[in-house]
Design a protein around this nucleic acid. Sequence first.
DNA 1: GTTCTAGAAC
DNA 2: GTTCTAGAAC
Length: 254
Amino acid sequence: MVNELYPYIVEFEEEAESPGLETHRKRKRSGNSDSIERDAAQEAESSTGLEPGSDSSQCSVPLKKGKDAPTKKESLGHWSQGLKISMQDPKMQVYKDEQVVVIKDKYPKARYHWLVLPWASVSSLKAVTGEHLELLKHMHTVGEKMIADFAGSSKLRFRLGYHAIPSMSHVHLHVISQDFDSPCLKNKKHWNSFNTEYFLESQAVIEMVQHAGRVSVRDGMPELLKLPLRCHECQQLLPSIPQLKEHLRRHWPK
DNA sequence: GTTCTAGAAC
DNA sequence: GTTCTAGAAC
């Protein structure tokens, strides 16, 4: 029944339907039934709350086999558009007001990890102008309210900020606790995106917009993601992600 | 963004 | 032999 909602996925995967003599491992790469179920379940998770009729291209395309059947997932189904879908899903919304909505990050990189998104369509920091100043301030204020309301009694430190080069469309403010205690934190890119200058402090972004009317991002951001792993609390270098995660435990509040 | 895995690192 | 990372694929 889940698959009925996602004709694209079925269409897209069906050509690879014969695992046959080859190993499942090999076939999975090109999409066997295992990955159909996984993808469909994952996609469904973030879009089952869409209001009926709110997006016919996503929900109501009949499953048709033929020349005009899509052979690939289309733009709305692309992973980079996931926030737009999630933010509309009432089950994902932790807070909302007239200007913004807050959702939990689907793959949290710490014990607390929210995303604050404006209802207004602002594609990225590149599109931000002086007209967005009050919106950015409000996003920050709401982020602080999330901390106060849901982690006020914890001893955790928080940071609020933006990724210099986000993967997902639509401006989103990260509100993340500094334990980085999460199974979803898995690699160097994850770490460095929150613990180098790749992470742009919300306050600094606000001040940039105040003084320059836009957000300027320095060159060399992709390289920051490849820097050696360094503890954000004591600056110690760690040789691997597992060792970093073990090290971080010593900084957790008691 | 995530998953998956070849092959590097240990 | 096992762990871990990096890059392709999605």
